[in-house]
């Protein structure tokens, strides 16, 4: 690593000016454009797969939200499902009690999850990785327990029934094939992705990376860590809440499963598969994860979680970086163009 010529050094051609070099980081690359064109193209291409694609888009958004705190701020969370669940229940309750327009519901649910995330963020400011693990896990458990106990509001273990979602913006009705659902979820994910992309390439985003890289030094050059962490954690909670709301709105059902520990673990696994810290990891990981889950569940329906555990163990044991580098080598130029600094 040390003596290797750095990848960021321009080869051959005249070195760019520092400003151009810095701004080039944020420039769109053609595989990114191709990625999104394909994603939207699937609306027309695979009409009978839209339900699955809808789930992938939502999982991708959820993993993207975890990537914001894990990949950019270095916060390990075992309870990201808390915000997913809050958004999901908020959307369900809104739809049940009169606010049936999905976009309004989506924004309000995101705000609700964001509020919870904002409050929860103060608990992760202090302490080490370990205390953060505990706090995030604890918060998720509290919400799971809340949803379970407040059964007159949430329906408890039976799930929230009687959700009726109206047409999007009063015009587009949800259909059984999931075409509207996929289009809706993908559009929301895309817009939120654009915002996230803007933010991670801003000075604020850079300061987060610095905090993750070396907390001590970041403090010595005057970066006050707490406000940055509160901000990104809140934003991630909004994203997770919106992902939850999308799932509620497109399936018209909310259950305790939304808050399960397994959901938090899913998001982690997605990021392990797709890689973290370059925004596309969540989306690419979500595709791989869902396809893998479908295949493995078809083989051994009840024991999917065995394979999930197996994949985690193997990935970590071999070394996430090393394995991913090997697997991704054929795609390395592509991934680099997508903005991943190191495979």
């Amino acid at each position: 690593m040390l003596s290797k010529p750095p990848s960021t050094r321009p080869l051959g051609a005249q070195a760019p000016s520092p400003a151009a070099f810095l701004q080039a980081r944020a420039a769109w690359r053609w595989p990114e454009i191709l990625f999104w064109i394909s994603a939207f193209g699937l609306i027309l291409l695979f009409p009978n797969r839209h339900l699955l694609l809808n789930e992938i888009a939502i999982l991708g958004l959820f993993a993207l939200s975890l990537d914001l705190i894990l990949g950019y701020a270095g916060i390990v969370s075992l309870g990201h499902a808390a915000f997913f669940g809050v958004g999901a229940y908020a959307a369900g309750l809104l739809a049940k009690h009169g606010v049936s327009e999905p976009v309004t519901g989506l924004l309000l649910s995101g705000a609700a999850a964001g509020l919870v995330g904002f409050l929860a963020s103060f608990m992760i400011l202090r302490g080490t990785d370990l205390t953060r693990l505990m706090v995030t896990l604890g918060v998720a458990l509290i919400f799971h327990e809340l949803a379970n106990r407040l059964d007159w509001i949430t329906g408890g273990a039976d799930g929230l029934l009687g959700i009726s979602v109206g047409p999007i913006l009063g015009r587009f009705d949800f259909d059984f094939a999931g075409t509207t659902a996929y289009t809706y979820s993908l559009t929301a994910t895309f817009l939120l992705f654009l915002l996230a992309r803007r933010i991670v390439h801003s000075p604020f985003g850079l300061s987060l990376k610095a905090l993750k890289d070396n907390h001590l030094r970041a403090a010595t050059i005057g970066i006050a860590p707490n406000r940055r962490i509160v901000a990104i954690y809140t934003l991630a909670a909004v994203y997770a809440g919106m992902a939850g709301a999308l799932l509620t709105q497109t399936t018209q059902f909310v259950s305790l499963e939304m808050l399960d520990f397994a959901r938090s673990a899913d998001a982690l696994l997605v990021l392990v598969i797709g890689g973290s810290g370059y925004l596309y990891g969540g989306l690419i990981g979500a595709i791989a994860f869902k396809l893998m889950k479908d295949t493995l569940s078809a083989m051994t329906p009840a024991y999917w979680i065995f394979w999930m555990g197996f994949i985690l163990v193997i990935l970590v044991l071999i070394g996430r970086d090393r394995l991913m580098a090997t697997l991704a080598r054929p795609f390395a130029p592509l991934l680099k163009l997508l903005g991943a600094r190191r495979p």
Binding site: L22, Q23, I199, P203, F204, S207
Partner: peptide, 17 residues
């Protein structure tokens, strides 16, 4: 940027300033 109070801007690009 931090010294100049511009370190928390989240809408501009790094390198624009």
């Amino acid at each position: 940027a931090e010294r100049e109070g511009a370190g928390a801007r989240w809408w501009s690009r790094v390198g624009q300033n």
